[in-house]
Each structure stands twice: as C-alpha cells, then as structure tokens.
Amino acid sequence: MPNLVLPPDAPSLADAVAQAVRDGVAAGELVPEVTYSVYQLAELLDVSRSPAREGLLRLAEAGLIEIRRNRGFRVLPPQAHDIEEIIGIRLALEPPAARAAAVTGTDDQHTAIRAALAAMATAAAAGDEAAFWPADRTLHDLLLHAAGKPRTAAIVERLRTTTALLGPPTTASGRSLPEIHAEHEPVVAAVLARDGAAAESAMRTHLEATRDLLVRRAGELSEGPATIGP
C-alpha cells in the first residue's frame, strides 16, 4: 500500500480518511492504474472499515474515485470535460480574487506573495519540482487569502488535487518549470503594483493556458487499470 497519513485535525474519521486519500493522490502515492483494497486502507490508517468506507463514499460522490464492489477502489483520472469544468470553476473564482488581492491585500500579504514567487523562481532554476509545486500552491493560496476568500482557497486546493491525477504538472501541461513560473510573474507584478484589472487579466490568461494544455493531456491519457490484492 502507499504511504498515507491520517490528518490529526479533521472533523471526523471519515473526513480524515477522505483527506488522507486526497493527499495521497496529490503526492502521487495513489495512481489511476491500480485498484486499492479498502481493508488495507483501513489498516494502513489505523481506522475501522466503517469510516474508511464512508470517507471513500464521499470521494466517489465527488468523482475522485470509483468504488469497485468486492474489489476495492481506484482513483479516476479526469476526462477532458472534467478539466474544462474544473478550470471553469477556477476561472470564476481566481481572476476576481487576484483583482481583490491587488486592491485590498495588506503590505504583509503582498510581501508573502512576493516571497512565494521568489521561491518558485529558485526552485525552477534548480529544476527542483519537489520545492516548486508547494511554492506554486502557496502562491495561489496566498492570493486567495489576500482577497479575503479562505473558503475559496479550500475549494481551489481540492480542485487542484483532481487535476494532479493527470501526472506531474510539467508532464501534464507540457511546460517547463521556468515557463510556469513566468506565467505567474505578471500576476504577482500586477498585484504588487495594486493594479486590479491587470492582476485579474493575468490570472485569467494563466488559467486559460493551463486549461487548454490539461485538456489535451486528458485526451491523451488512456492507460487501463491494474489490480492488486483484495
């Protein structure tokens, strides 16, 4: 079984199981090609089968996994229409938030945003994907919090977990780390200049480019599932 960790601060065991699976997907510990045992998942997370099943049912309802009767569950790679819907939601949320972050964000929040972009630049120059993607997520999260939208930040993080199933973002999008960093530069520059319109436009351009590339990747992804023990 993969390396999964039960988060200690979830509202319930079922929520904790769901979050552990989401985190496993985001970290590449759970992959679409494999059918995983519910019993082994419960044992790995040291919970009973009831909250394990309940947590998985929540993920199945969200379309993140498929429960296979008497066999276990498998992670579902998103289809092209899933990507279009996910990025469509992000386009409705993040460009206006970038505008708000530019206009109403505090100086301290802007400093943190600048630091996140700098961390992305350092990781990109070193080819360090393990450092780059946390900095990328942090930057988007900071922008949403600077806009005063913590609930939106949580929604976006869950949506990003689904698109992570397409594989490493450099592979999924066909862009290098420096290219992805470069797409974020005009967003941050506009935010720091307190130019709300430019920040919104730059974020929209970034997300639309991401959508187009991920939709193409989803269309190319055609591996079938394998199976492991019961």
Rank of each mutant, 00 (worst) to 15 (best):
T170M: 09
E94W: 04
A164Y: 09
A26W: 07
V38A: 11
V191P: 07
L13E: 15
G28L: 02
T104D: 01
A102G: 12
P230C: 06
A172E: 11
P168A: 15
T152W: 05
T106E: 02
P169N: 11
V38T: 15
H181Y: 13
R99W: 04
E223T: 11
Y39E: 14
G224W: 10
T138H: 12
L159P: 10
R74D: 01
H81D: 12
Y39A: 12
H81A: 12
A112I: 02
A101G: 09
Q40E: 13
A153G: 12
T170K: 00
A164D: 13
V31Q: 14
V103Q: 14
D141A: 12
A98D: 11
I89M: 08
Q40N: 14
W133S: 01
E84N: 02
P77D: 02
V34Y: 10
V5Q: 11
R151M: 12
G224C: 02
A27V: 08
I83F: 09
R175P: 06
I180Y: 00
P96D: 11
T205K: 11
A189R: 12
A123D: 11
E208V: 13
A218Y: 01
A116T: 01
A190H: 08
T138S: 15
E84R: 10
E183C: 09
V188C: 02
A130Y: 02
P168S: 10
L213F: 01
A189V: 04
S222M: 00
A20K: 10
I83K: 08
A193D: 15
I83C: 08
L221T: 10
A121W: 00
T138V: 08
L221M: 06
S37I: 01
L30V: 07
V34R: 15
A199M: 07
S50F: 12
T152Y: 00
V34K: 14
D107Q: 09
G229N: 12
S12C: 04
L6Q: 04
L213C: 05
S48P: 01
A172T: 09
S48Y: 07
T122A: 11
T152L: 11
G167V: 08
G229I: 00
A42V: 05
G219R: 09
D82G: 09
V25P: 07
L93P: 02
E29P: 00
A115D: 15
L76I: 13
L76D: 08
L59M: 00
A115K: 06
W133L: 11
R204C: 06
A16V: 01
E54R: 14
V17Q: 03
A14K: 10
I67D: 03
A202F: 02
R137L: 10
L144Q: 15
R151H: 14
D23E: 13
T138F: 00
T162E: 15
L76E: 07
I86P: 02
